[in-house]
Design a protein around this nucleic acid. Structure first.
Lengths: 204, 204, 204, 204
DNA sequence: AATGAATGAGAGTTCATTCAT
DNA sequence: TATGAATGAACTCTCATTCAT
């Protein structure tokens, strides 16, 4: 929506060439962090992967942590996009949540490493760790509130329920996508449907 | 139950003095890892905290990773103990699960740092990361199967449901204990009760 | 003769500045290894002597062993040059061998420490140890073969005789240069002349 | 001949049990130094090989260097014994020298590692390095002087010639025993015979 | 006489960051 | 804007030696 103005590490606005270099660094960082994790990744490896000089890195990012944060933010943006696009096709809230899960699983399947990265950020960058969860959570809350307002759910505490739903999605993604064979089996999706329904639908 | 024979890094059985030193190192490691995370923790910091020489460390642990794994295993054992002791007092399965959560929250509240450590272990020591979740999960599964057999629950898939319950407990612990003020508010426990009930109880 | 392209530890070609730094490290290593031997020499001592930072070392050499090998190779090159230049002035083979000894003694006199270093390399770097002797030996063999072909010597086994001559040169160098006062006395050179003559000249 | 009184590191006379322990340490040291060289050998490895506690080592030897020196002295004694016993069977001096070589080669063949150890001692313990060569050299000198007095040789400088002969023996041992297949080939012995003859026998 | 737990100095090595070019 | 040589603090780990038992 809004035009984001990209800046260098010192705050200067970037030229077209600068924007490109920054992009290459970010792309390389995603690869390297994904493969090695935060600590085993190194600036040299990132700059090599990006095909730029070591010093160039610091023209765009003030530190290793900064590019990591930027990466998590970016990742978070893409995850939320994937989820909201997927859930948009649902009719009921339950359907929407399940489709949202699917979007999340798909994203996870194509970026399984990044998943683990976020868990690493707990110590690397606690702020960004929090940020990541809260942004996703906020999406859940919005959906639940709307549904509640529309009388689609029983009397639920949207905020708490949002944490619960997000937790379930994350754990299932870890269990079947990251540890498993990259796919959530039918049997699991079915049970997920049962659980989500029971959590959201009004008691008869 | 079983007598665990403690050994040094080279496999030798420990003397009484050795057991004590090993214990001090483990205690120090818990503190240091908890405060700094795996990577920023260092052997020097651990041995300083333990009040022993640097070389002494390697008499008991072959590497930093080894003491870390040992610590996670130990932590895991204690968490499971806390949970099973707490849940034992419950009458119904729902009650038991909620009490188990409480046990988990209490444990988390007194070791909030260790909580984040485990999330870090994804890259440090993937095996131990898996081990941690699977051990706790196995406890949930056992409880659910018994309850299902006793006709206490509806037709649930115990395995999937176990991952879901564990996920919820972990996320709530993170949200209100680690990020919050160390206590899960009444309002949240109430909602948790609702959710667990809905997940487990047979539809009327 | 051939242009040797110097490379860093990672194989990259060196800039002019890089060549200079590499040279300073090599010079410092010669000093430090010479004074302390392989084991008591340390990277810190070498970099201090070279006036560069510790990390700089690893920009040019992958390990302590690598700079040591490089040094022995370099030393070997210079010894052989000294010997062949000295012996070139001789007319007969015997004269050439004796002049070659002189060249060797002179070199040893100006680098007595390096002499002992090579003996150390037996365990440090067996390959380079072998290499050192074989390269020098090959020079002897060449000279002896030519002389034999020219009918200048009796019926000798050039290969075995080459080992014998080299052995004598090395031992005398050790005895009078390294352990003695840095000069081979007239009396010894005279006896050496007798021995070499007897070994090479055809029996009357 | 003389009874050597063995003492501990602090100079105390050893009991029978003490003598035995000391012997086991020495035997273990021979093995360990032989296999690993001076620097990679460690006290722990030696005491383990000897089957005694770490501290026990220092009851008998003041330092790592001390046991090494002792070992080289012992080795030197045995080499000289092997050489003199072998050469005793010769009639002429030339025969004796060649038999002495054989004795030396045989000894080297059964202790090839120890051979390299001595070369290491240049830096470890320069005194013992010198000592080793001078003791062997002295044996050569004695033989040559007797032979010269008996008119068996030409007009030679026994001292210089002794260094030369020793050098040849050492180098051939290294080339064919240590680097080769543990045996000095017939062709080489033949050439050695020629060389020694020419060095010693009076010119006709 | 024997032990082995403890020590701590020092080893080799890595890497985020700086800076002159 | 880009470079890459240089840095040095900090890392993990080893080992000769000491000492209380």
């Amino acid at each position: 929506m809004s035009d984001i103005v990209l800046t260098g590490a010192d705050g200067r606005t970037l030229s077209a060439r600068g924007v490109e270099t920054r992009g290459r660094l970010l792309g390389a960082a995603e690869l390297v962090f994904g493969e090695l994790g935060y600590y085993d990744a190194s600036i040299v490896k990132i700059t090599e992967a990006a095909g730029v000089g070591q010093g160039t890195f610091y023209l765009y990012f003030a530190s290793k942590k900064e590019i990591f944060d930027e990466l998590v933010r970016d990742l978070n943006r893409r995850i939320r996009k994937a989820m909201s696009e997927a859930s948009a096709k649902g009719k009921t809230r339950v359907e929407k949540e399940l489709l949202g899960f699917d979007g999340y699983f798909e994203f996870t399947a194509s970026h399984p490493e990044l998943y683990s990265i976020i868990r690493q950020s707990a110590f690397v960058s606690p702020d960004i760790f929090l940020y990541h969860y809260e942004r996703i959570w906020a999406g859940y809350v919005r959906g639940l509130r709307d549904a509640a307002a529309a009388g689609e759910t029983g009397p639920i505490d949207s905020e708490v329920t949002a944490w619960a739903l997000m937790a379930i999605g994350e754990m299932v993604g870890m269990r079947w996508i990251v540890w498993g064979d990259g796919e959530v089996p039918e049997r699991v999706t079915a049970e997920l449907a049962r659980i989500v329904k029971r959590i959201l639908e009004p008691p008869r």
